[in-house]
Computed example of a mutant assay.
Amino acid sequence: MNQDERMYIIENQKVTIEREINGDKILDIGGGGEGVIGLCYGKNVVAIDPRKDELEEAPDGPLKIVMDARELSFLENSFDAVTSFFTLMYISKKEHEKVFNEIYNVLKKDGEFVLWDTIIPKYDGDGKDIFVIQLEIITPAKLLKTGYGVSRKDTEQDIEYFVKLGQKIGFNVIKREKQDQIFKIVFKK
């Protein structure tokens, strides 16, 4: 089976990023690559990514730091907001709770954690073991077309999975939106 035959593809998902994140200090988890949040909020953003090459690829504007979300090296209550734009799909599910705890610790009281991600169906052994999502991202700065891919094995997730995880950590869910195969959740500390 070639790589194309192994892909489970979700096509043409549209995401609109508006100027909706409040605060002067925004931490963007996984802010490398297209650096969508950094592109929209510029110098207000601290973009972290464990991969230096991904941060080098991201647009200028935010402060870029090589760092793993499982071990945030910031003081508690440092950020007004934290974002994760299609990043948690790349972090092992067994590490999600640790990441949520780290986010909770660095957020200020009443700070918001805004999470965008996708529904990844359970892998049923059908041979399509690579999950790919194609996105059209509409930002105030420009239109981006991109795709993200991960293994489907042990990566099943949906909006309820993240809602329950956030509540377990102590977040309140103040907004949840689902559109086709993608979703956005706004948590408040």
Rank of each mutant, 00 (worst) to 15 (best):
G38L: 06
L39W: 01
C40T: 10
C40Y: 01
Y41W: 07
K43F: 01
N44L: 12
V45R: 08
V45F: 03
V45P: 15
V46L: 05
A47Y: 07
A47I: 02
A47C: 06
I48L: 12
I48Q: 02
D49L: 08
D49Q: 05
D49R: 05
P50A: 04
R51L: 14
D53H: 10
D53P: 00
E54T: 00
E54S: 12
E54P: 00
E57Y: 15
A58N: 03
A58G: 06
P59I: 05
P62K: 09
P62N: 09
K64T: 06
M67S: 07
A69D: 02
R70D: 00
E71F: 09
E71H: 04
L75H: 12
E76M: 02
N77R: 11
N77C: 01
S78A: 12
S78I: 01
F79N: 01
D80N: 12
V82T: 06
S84D: 10
S84F: 05
F86Q: 09
T87V: 11
L88S: 10
Y90S: 14
Y90I: 06
Y90C: 08
Y90K: 05
I91D: 14
I91R: 11
S92G: 09
K93D: 07
E95K: 04
K98Y: 00
V99N: 09
V99K: 03
N101Y: 15
N101C: 11
N101I: 04
I103P: 11
I103L: 03
N105C: 05
V106L: 02
L107R: 03
K108F: 06
D110W: 00
D110K: 07
D110G: 01
G111K: 03
E112D: 15
E112H: 15
E112Y: 10
F113S: 02
V114D: 01
L115P: 01
T118V: 13
I119S: 00
I120H: 07
P121A: 06
K122Q: 13
Y123Q: 08
Y123E: 04
G125K: 09
D126W: 02
G127I: 05
D129A: 09
I130T: 07
I130A: 03
I133Q: 07
Q134W: 10
L135Y: 15
E136R: 08
E136Y: 08
E136D: 15
E136S: 12
I137P: 08
P140G: 13
L144V: 14
K145M: 14
T146D: 09
Y148H: 15
V150N: 08
V150C: 11
S151N: 13
S151P: 10
R152M: 11
K153D: 12
D154C: 03
T155N: 09
E156I: 00
Q157W: 00
D158H: 04
I159Q: 09
E160H: 07
Y161W: 06
V163G: 11
V163Y: 08
K164I: 00
G166F: 04
